[in-house]
Simulated scan of single mutants.
Amino acid sequence: MSVNVIFGSDGGNTKAVASRIAKHIQGRAIDIKAASVADFESPSLLILGSPTYGAGDLQTDWEAHLDKLTTAKLVGKKVALFGTGDQVSYPDCFVDAMGVLYDLVVGQGASVVGFTETAGYDFTGSRAERDGQFVGLALDQDSQSSKTEKRIKEWVSQLI
C-alpha cells in the first residue's frame, strides 16, 4: 500500500506527528509547501494533517496551498485525517482544522476512514466531531503528549 502523509506545520508538532505516522505506516511525509497535486492523487491511502490556529482555522501553509488539494481528483480516494490542537486553551474549537479538511475532501468525493472516539478528551466544541466521533486522529501535544504514541499506533493499525 502506498501512503502519503501531507501536513502543514509551523511550530514543528504536526510535522513530528506526520513523521511518526509515516514511519508506522511505511509512508512518505510531505510538507504541504512541497506537495504536488500528484502527491494527493497517487497513493492508495492519503493522510492529511493540520494544526488548528486561532478560532478554528487551518494552518497558514494549508491556506496558502489549498488549491493543490481542491484541484486534486479525489473521487473514491481513501483519505485519513489527523489534527493537532490544544483542548485546554481552545476547548471550543479543538482540532477544528481537521473538520475543515474533512468537509473539503468529502465534497470532492473522497472516502474518509479512521474515525476515532472522543472519549479521553476534554473539549466543548469541535468542527471535527461528527455523530459523536472525531473524523480522524485528534492529538493534543500540549496537555496529552504522553498519549500520542499509543493513539498513533492504534489509529494506524485501524487504517491498515
Rank of each mutant, 00 (worst) to 15 (best):
M1N: 06
V3A: 07
F7E: 01
F7M: 01
G11E: 11
V17N: 03
A18T: 05
A18P: 05
R20D: 15
R20F: 08
I21C: 07
H24K: 14
R28D: 10
R28G: 00
I30N: 04
D31R: 04
I32S: 06
A35I: 11
A35C: 08
S36I: 08
V37D: 04
F40Y: 14
F40N: 08
S44H: 14
L46Y: 13
L46W: 13
I47F: 07
L48Q: 03
G49M: 05
D57I: 03
T60N: 11
T60D: 15
D61V: 00
E63L: 10
E63M: 10
H65C: 09
L66F: 15
D67Q: 11
K68G: 11
K68V: 13
L69V: 13
T71P: 01
G76S: 10
G76C: 11
T84Q: 06
Q87P: 02
V88E: 14
D96P: 03
V100M: 06
L101C: 07
L104F: 10
V105Q: 09
G107P: 12
Q108G: 14
V112A: 06
V112S: 06
T116H: 13
E117N: 14
G120E: 09
Y121K: 03
F123E: 05
T124Y: 00
S126H: 07
A128L: 07
G136D: 11
Q141R: 02
Q141N: 13
S143T: 12
S145C: 00
S145P: 00
E149Q: 14
K150H: 10
W155M: 13
V156C: 08
Q158P: 01
